[in-house]
Structure formats: C-alpha cells, structure tokens
Simulated assay, not measured.
Amino acid sequence: MIRLENITRSFMLGKENVHVLNGISLTIESGEFVAIMGPSGSGKSTLMNIIGCLDKPTEGEYFLASENVSHYNDKELARVRNQSIGFVFQQFHLLPRLSALKNVELPMIYAGISKKERQARAEEALIKVGLSDRMNHLPNALSGGQKQRVAIARAIVNQPKLILADEPTGALDSKTSIDIMDQFSKLNEEGVTVVVVTHESEVAQYANRTIMVRDGLIQSPTLIDRGMLQ
C-alpha cells in the first residue's frame, strides 16, 4: 500500500537548510492499522504530509498503491488525495456555515459526483458514524466528538483505501477519544488502511504497529507490541 524509499525532506529557514526527514524507508501493508509517534520536532507530521501527498520529498521515492507519486505535480497530487486518501485532523476543519451533511458532501463535489448521489452517500456515511439525527446541524451545534465524527464521515465518503489521522483525539476528552478511536478500529476491520499520528500512548494502543520517529529517522525496532505501550 505504502512504500517509502530513503525519503528526505529539508526546508530553507533563512539561509540555513534545515533537514526534517533524514532518509526514511518504510512499508505499510494494505489493511494495517499503524500509529506514528515521536516527540515534538521529530518529523512525524512532515512524514504524515508526505504520505498524504500534501507535500513532496526533497529526495527519495514514494509509492502509493504501486503508483510512484514522488514527482507528481500539484494537480496530480490533488487527484490522488481526492480519490485514494481520507484525512482527519485534530481541529476538524469543518466549514461553519454548512450543515454536517453538506460538509460531508464536499469531497464528492471535487470528484464530480452528481448531487443526488452525493446526498445519498453523505447520508450513508453519517449514519455509519452514528450521526443520523445530526445531519442538518451546523458545526457550532455539535459537540467536539460529533464534529470529529462528521470529519470521519467526510474522510470515508469517497471510499478511500487509506485514512490518515493527525492527532485526531487531541481536542477531545478521554471518553470521546475512545469513541473516535473505536470508529477507526471499525474502519480498519472493514479493510481500510489506517495511519494515525499521535503523541498519546493510549491512542497508539489501538494500532497493530507503532512506528517511532526521532530526529527525522525511524527508531529501531519499528514494530512495538501493544502491551509495551500499556
């Protein structure tokens, strides 16, 4: 599903070339549930951005579903994101003047799906995450957990094979966090590949594999048993 070969990423900060990723090689198989952990500044968010085709590596090769996306232009990367990847972020990123239903429809508008099909699929996705009675509510009328469920519904509505979640429970209380992580577990059980970036060991326990990143490198061993995080 995901194969990174010697990925580096550097940025110019003034006159200094700052290296954030320093040669990462990684494989994530289809159907895995993987957590990426690391301290602040470790490079885990930059790694997530490259996996999500939100950024391009400075050097190295990235294969997503056997497709080498390393050197794609912005238009090609946008196509991959829309067709193959669902995103869930810490701050939800819902449009405040649109209902839950309309927010979920957005990715399908960009995909050119008809209005009738958009509505039917958006309703189905919201029912799936337990929001059948909140479809027409605006985001400010929803709790934090409900907003994140809308974000999950939006992420899955185009039926992607890969879900990327960046600190998805960071703005939620512990009980709501459990509910949200259970949603990701259900999606994974249905065959969706799930990759979660987190600094919380409680969240990482839901994954089958935890990848530790420090100083732009993957620490060895990359496979950490759930029991070691308890």
Rank of each mutant, 00 (worst) to 15 (best):
residue 120 A to I: 00
residue 44 K to Y: 14
residue 51 I to A: 06
residue 47 L to N: 06
residue 10 S to T: 12
residue 132 S to C: 04
residue 50 I to Q: 11
residue 105 E to Q: 15
residue 96 P to M: 00
residue 73 N to S: 09
residue 102 K to D: 15
residue 33 F to T: 07
residue 35 A to N: 01
residue 7 I to V: 09
residue 41 G to F: 08
residue 134 R to P: 14
residue 31 G to K: 05
residue 117 E to Y: 01
residue 29 E to F: 08
residue 116 K to R: 15
residue 66 S to K: 15
residue 95 L to M: 14
residue 128 K to C: 06
residue 25 S to R: 03
residue 81 R to G: 08
residue 25 S to L: 07
residue 129 V to F: 02
residue 99 S to C: 10
residue 7 I to F: 12
residue 7 I to H: 06
residue 25 S to I: 00
residue 126 L to F: 08
residue 87 F to W: 07
residue 101 L to I: 00
residue 35 A to I: 03
residue 90 Q to G: 02
residue 96 P to R: 09
residue 92 F to T: 02
residue 13 L to V: 11
residue 127 I to Q: 03
residue 131 L to A: 13
residue 38 G to D: 05
residue 81 R to I: 04
residue 43 G to H: 00
residue 32 E to Q: 06
residue 16 E to T: 07
residue 105 E to M: 04
residue 27 T to P: 15
residue 49 N to F: 06
residue 72 Y to E: 11
residue 109 I to T: 05
residue 43 G to P: 02
residue 119 Q to V: 10
residue 116 K to Y: 14
residue 14 G to W: 02
residue 96 P to N: 05
residue 104 V to G: 01
residue 66 S to Y: 12
residue 72 Y to C: 05
residue 42 S to Y: 08
residue 9 R to W: 01
residue 93 H to M: 06
residue 121 R to H: 03
residue 93 H to V: 04
residue 62 Y to K: 02
residue 107 P to W: 03
residue 90 Q to L: 04
residue 34 V to M: 09
residue 120 A to F: 11
residue 84 S to Y: 09
residue 114 S to A: 04
residue 27 T to W: 14
residue 49 N to R: 02
residue 7 I to D: 01
residue 108 M to D: 10
residue 94 L to I: 08
residue 46 T to A: 05
residue 91 Q to G: 02
residue 52 G to V: 13
residue 76 E to I: 00
residue 7 I to W: 00
residue 25 S to F: 00
residue 31 G to Y: 09
residue 15 K to I: 10
residue 125 A to G: 12
residue 105 E to I: 01
residue 40 S to R: 08
residue 51 I to T: 07
residue 50 I to V: 12
residue 53 C to Y: 04
residue 89 F to M: 04
residue 105 E to S: 07
residue 70 S to V: 02
residue 61 E to C: 07
residue 114 S to H: 09
residue 40 S to H: 13
residue 22 N to S: 12
residue 48 M to H: 00
residue 115 K to Y: 13
residue 113 I to T: 12
residue 38 G to K: 05
residue 103 N to M: 04
residue 103 N to H: 00
residue 123 E to T: 07
residue 17 N to Y: 13
residue 23 G to F: 02
residue 72 Y to T: 03
residue 44 K to C: 00
